[in-house]
């Protein structure tokens, strides 16, 4: 019941469909070719929350860079709502592992960055305030980044992404460097932001529990070059519970897929 409401809410708002078709990519390092993605195909419905899980260095983050438009793929196609992704667009925003806030800007001006870059800050100042409100940092508007804790800095970088009203939010291990307690509360926050704003979310992580706690679908990648190993639907309503035996079973299954069965 709760899930139905959440999904309906999500689908009623923005959120774009994402199609990745037969995408391969490689890097040239010292004249050698290093394949990182091997004919990856995946689709996300508008407003869907998809987690990409895989061993460290397998090429998940490269896939995100391609989706964002930071680099073009060597072969294959990426489509947003059926239109080819050819370059950067503020409708697809990335939250990186490091908050990378600009240290010379206050929190408010950091969040305003996207609107300023697009030249619409003058008329849209209220969106900055709203985004800060959304992540609960309104009272820190005039603080400088070095005055923030790690979790607060990452919330600012979330606000900096959300202020652009993205159709697709790309999260590149956004909680990877936070302490475990902050991480747990941020996971809950990300779910509620996603439910409220309704954007399509692509989350890269190597934390299985995080993927299962947050996403509607978990896609498991192989070692480099990344190939899709499994596409697992997490059919559980939000808010989820970490002790849910259903999630525990899925976790066991995924550990097996990653060749870590003996750690169970």
């Amino acid at each position: 019941m709760v899930r139905a409401v959440a999904v309906k809410q999500a689908e009623s708002q923005a959120g774009a469909a994402l199609d990745v078709e037969e995408v391969s990519h490689h890097f040239n390092i010292d004249g050698k070719t290093l394949p990182v993605l091997d004919r990856v195909t995946l689709n996300a419905r508008p407003g869907e929350f998809v987690a990409l899980l895989g061993p460290s260095g397998c090429g998940k983050s490269t896939l995100l860079r391609l989706v964002a438009g930071l680099e073009p793929p060597r072969s294959g196609r990426l489509l947003e709502d059926g239109r080819a992704i050819t370059g950067l667009n503020p409708s697809r925003v990335v939250v990186f592992q490091d908050p990378t806030l600009f240290p010379w800007r206050t929190v408010w001006k950091n969040v305003a960055l996207g609107l300023e870059a697009q030249g619409i800050i003058k008329s849209e100042r209220h969106r900055v305030d709203a985004a800060l409100e959304l992540v609960g940092l309104k009272s820190f508007a005039n603080a400088y980044p070095h005055q923030l804790s790690g979790g607060m800095a990452q919330r600012v970088s979330l606000a900096r992404a959300l202020v652009n009203d993205p159709d697709i939010l790309i999260l590149d291990e956004p909680l990877g460097k936070l302490d475990s307690l902050t991480r747990l509360s941020m996971q809950t926050e990300i779910v509620s932001l996603w439910q409220r704003q309704g954007f399509t979310t692509l989350l890269v992580t190597h934390d299985i529990e995080e993927a299962l706690f947050l996403a509607q679908r978990v896609i498991v990648f192989s070692d480099r070059p990344a190939k899709m190993k499994a596409d697992i639907a997490v059919d559980r309503a939000y808010p989820r519970h970490r002790g849910d035996p259903y999630l525990a079973d899925l976790r066991h299954e995924i550990l097996g897929l990653l060749g870590l069965d003996e750690t169970w």
Binding site: A68, G69, L70, L88, N89, P90, R92, V93, V94, F96, D98, T100, F102, W104, R105, L113, G114, E116, A117, Q118, R160, N164
Partner: peptide
């Protein structure tokens, strides 16, 4: 750091923005 440019570019920054609002202040 390239990370600053990546962030600004994903948020829709043009080259002039990258020079005047990222490179120079940094």
């Amino acid at each position: 750091s390239n990370a600053y440019y990546d962030v600004a570019r994903t948020l829709g920054a043009k080259p002039s923005f990258l020079v005047f609002k990222v490179a120079i202040p940094a």
